[in-house]
Computed example of a mutant assay.
Amino acid sequence: MSDPFLGEIKMFGGNFAPRGYSLCNGQLMALSQNTALFALLGTVYGGNGVSNFGLPNFQGRAPIHWGQGAGLQNVILGEAAGLEAVTLLTSNIPPHIHSLTVSSAGGTSSTPLANGYLGAAVDKDLNPINLYTTTSTAPVNLNTSVTGGGLPVENRSPYLAVSFIIALMGEFPSRN
């Protein structure tokens, strides 16, 4: 196998970085010991640019190419965005109403009726009675409001965890 390009990122099935590579875990590298790699990465992935610089961090992240595709928002090299879980708010949910029309009249059928209403469900002794009626005495619309528990919802696509490694040694890539 030929030498990798310096800074080349590969997927690797092991839980360690082979010799000449480092895991892409966002760690800071000493600039004085890695000047060629710093020349390629700069501080795009972190660091102060004086004594250190950061390696890319793929922990909990999926790779995406930088730039702007047709109809997509611009993504900047080194940008980290997105969330593993989100909490949906009523402002995130499309407006909708759950309505139910009921009647105060006693039910006359045990099955839904065409052009019918939901009638009284139990008698004064809590015995079940027929639910449905065609009598429309004072129909009432019961509109419910949107509620929720406020718990986060998983936002990740199915995934398989592998290691991402970056070449610390190799051929310096030319631009042409």
Rank of each mutant, 00 (worst) to 15 (best):
Gln33Asn: 14
Gly20Ile: 08
Asn115Gln: 14
Pro18Trp: 04
Phe164Glu: 04
Arg175Ser: 12
Glu171Asp: 14
Gly148Val: 13
Leu126Ser: 14
Tyr132Ser: 00
Pro4Glu: 04
Phe53His: 11
Val146Tyr: 03
Ser145Thr: 15
Arg156Ser: 13
Arg175Pro: 02
Arg19Pro: 06
Gly69Ser: 12
Gly150Ser: 12
Glu171Trp: 00
Asn48Ala: 05
His96Arg: 13
Gly69Pro: 02
His98Ser: 12
Val86Pro: 06
Gly82Cys: 09
Thr133Trp: 05
Gly20Leu: 04
Asp123Asn: 13
Leu160Asp: 01
Gln59Trp: 00
Val146Thr: 15
Asn74Glu: 12
Ala70Asp: 14
Asp3Ser: 11
Asn57Leu: 00
Asp3Leu: 08
Asn92Gly: 08
Asp125Ser: 15
Phe16Trp: 10
Met1Asp: 09
Leu37Ala: 06
Phe12Thr: 04
Ser163Ile: 07
Leu83Trp: 05
Pro139Tyr: 10
Glu84Met: 08
Ala39Arg: 11
Met1Val: 03
Tyr45Phe: 15
Leu28Ala: 07
Leu37Met: 08
Gly20Phe: 05
Ser104Asn: 10
Phe5Thr: 01
Ala120Leu: 12
Val140Asn: 08
Leu100Glu: 15
Thr87Glu: 03
Gln27Trp: 02
Gln68Asp: 10
His98Val: 11
Asn74Cys: 01
Ala17Phe: 05
Gly69His: 06
Ala39Lys: 14
Tyr117Val: 06
Thr90Trp: 04
Val162Lys: 13
Glu84Ser: 15
Gln73Met: 05
Gly107Thr: 01
Gln27Ile: 04
Val146Ile: 15
Ser174Gly: 14
His98Phe: 05
Asn74Leu: 11
Ala70Met: 09
Ser174Asn: 13
Ala121Thr: 12
Asp123Ser: 01
Asn25Met: 00
Pro139Glu: 08
Leu88Asp: 10
Leu72Trp: 02
Leu113Glu: 06
Ser110Lys: 01
Thr133Asn: 09
Ser145Met: 11
Asn48Glu: 11
Gly14Cys: 03
Leu31Gly: 06
Tyr159Pro: 00
Leu89Phe: 11
Ala85Asn: 14
Asn34Glu: 07
Gly170Ser: 01
Ser91Val: 10
Leu118His: 07
Ser109Trp: 07
Ser51Phe: 03
Ile129Asn: 00
Gly150Tyr: 06
Leu23Thr: 04
Gly60Arg: 12
Val102Asp: 09
Pro152Val: 09
Glu84Leu: 09
Thr90Pro: 07
Val75Gly: 01
Asn57Thr: 00
Asn176Ile: 10
Val146Pro: 03
His98Glu: 08
Ser91Gln: 15
Lys124Ser: 13
Gly82Gln: 15
Pro128Leu: 04
Asp123Ala: 07
Pro112Arg: 07
Gly14Glu: 15
Val44Ala: 13
Leu88Trp: 06
Thr135Leu: 09
Ser136Phe: 02
His65Ile: 07
Gly149Leu: 13
Gly47Phe: 04
Gly116His: 04
Glu154Trp: 01
Phe53Trp: 04
Asn141Arg: 11
Val153Asp: 00
Ala138Ile: 05
Asn48Ile: 04
Cys24Thr: 02
Thr43Phe: 02
Thr35His: 08
Gly150Glu: 13
Ile76Arg: 13
Gly149Gln: 14
Pro139Trp: 06
Gly78Arg: 07
